[in-house]
Simulated scan of single mutants.
Amino acid sequence: MDRRDFLKTSVGAAGLTIAAPYIARAATITMRFAHFAEEGHPANIAAKQFASQVEKRTDGAIKIAIFPNNQLGGPPEQAQQIKLGTIDMGLPTQGQLDKYDKAFATIELPFIFNGREDAFPILDGPAMEWLAPLAEKQGFVLLRNWEYGFRNVTNSVRPINEPDDMKGLKIRTPPELQIQASMEALGAVVTAIAFPELYLALSQKVVDGEENPIAVIYFNKIAEVQKHLALTQHVYNNMIHTIGVNSWKRLTPEQQAIFHEESRSSGELMRKLIADAETDQIDKLQKAGMQVTRPDLAAFRAKMEPAYKRIADYAGADNVKKFREIVDNYHSAHKG
């Protein structure tokens, strides 16, 4: 059929022949979802559930291509690409987002949370109400908090039961002020070592210990070179399911509602997978010979004012004051 015959057919069908295929093509959107977790990680399992459910609930109008394991660049590059729109969505942590607004740095205040039981409702509720508008001004729409985990201390010298047990220990940390400040406030000596070199440094006693989420300690076989694990839970952060503002605007209000609902569902899945795995991993670490202690964290928290001051210099005193008030208000409202 040549162009003239096609146009005649289209007009004869009251324009429907030309309009319907055009509308169908315009309504189909393929989005790029990049993150830094490995394919078998709970984050990627949750991402796949999100993509599947969105495609199903939009009748195929929205398809989501997932790029795990830093395929489209490292975490800082991913965050920038989300902002620019070359990637539609991802799972940045507060550590990536604090480069755009320092308020996000407050989430990693050491010992600010008692555990998941208050971290989740605080971050999902009042903290999200505070941070989401700030993120949107920078080009990010925060859909839902997912998970990453609390950080814990290992060492080869002695069990950690109270703050004084940390004094003098040489502890490797990543180059993040909040983590370094927390260790130094307890009297530890912080050393910077690249993560790929950490196992060798521990085995050769270059440092006495390190700190990481349980999954990192487990999968990197830290139990082979460290005897003690203290469940200090000193710093928490999580992956935040985030979509760029321009990508968000491409969605209808109904599709946006689906995104919010399915992001929440997938985030809950990830949280469950992480928590279940952590319990099992701690048990396996003990069976591998690690001695596990569960210190009273109140004594550790009481030592953190110097760390909070250092973090306030970076994140802004008003931001730190605001987040501490959010946490205090939550605790006051949920006493007992």
Rank of each mutant, 00 (worst) to 15 (best):
L143P: 08
K335D: 02
G74C: 06
D5G: 01
S247V: 02
S203N: 15
M290S: 10
A24F: 06
I282H: 06
T252H: 11
Y314K: 00
L84A: 14
P126F: 07
P159W: 02
T30G: 12
N238V: 09
A298I: 04
R151Q: 14
Q80Y: 12
T58Y: 03
N238Q: 04
K287F: 07
E129L: 12
A188P: 08
L251Q: 00
F67G: 06
E38C: 10
F111I: 00
E211T: 15
L186G: 11
T106E: 05
R3M: 14
T173K: 09
A43I: 04
D276F: 13
L91H: 02
P121N: 00
A230R: 08
A103P: 00
I171K: 09
S247R: 01
H334A: 11
L186Y: 07
D318T: 11
I326D: 03
H334R: 11
H41E: 11
E162G: 15
T232F: 09
L97T: 10
K48S: 04
F111A: 05
E210K: 01
E136R: 14
K272H: 14
I112V: 12
L123K: 13
S247Q: 12
Y314P: 02
V292R: 02
T30V: 04
I243C: 02
A302M: 00
K99A: 15
G244R: 04
K249R: 10
P253V: 14
V141A: 06
D313K: 03
E129T: 09
N246V: 12
P133R: 02
A299I: 05
A288D: 14
L123H: 11
A288H: 10
L16E: 07
K167I: 14
V141D: 00
A257V: 13
A192S: 11
I179E: 10
T93D: 03
L91G: 03
M270G: 07
T58A: 03
A317Y: 14
L273T: 07
R4S: 15
A132Y: 12
A24P: 04
E305G: 05
R158K: 10
A103M: 08
K83D: 11
F140G: 08
I274T: 11
R310P: 01
G139I: 10
A34P: 09
I66W: 02
P21H: 13
Y148S: 12
A24T: 10
V11N: 08
F111L: 09
P42C: 12
G168M: 08
N114F: 02
E117A: 15
M239H: 14
Y218W: 15
R294K: 13
Q71A: 08
V245Y: 09
F111Y: 15
E147I: 06
T242I: 10
E147G: 02
A46R: 14
D164V: 01
P306N: 09
N161W: 05
T242V: 06
L186I: 03
T30K: 10
M128F: 15
G73E: 05
F111S: 05
G85P: 08
Q204F: 11
S263R: 00
E254K: 15
T232Y: 13
F113V: 04
L202Y: 05
F36M: 03
R25Q: 08
N161T: 11
V153Y: 00
P126I: 14
A201V: 04
P42V: 06
H331Q: 06
N237M: 06
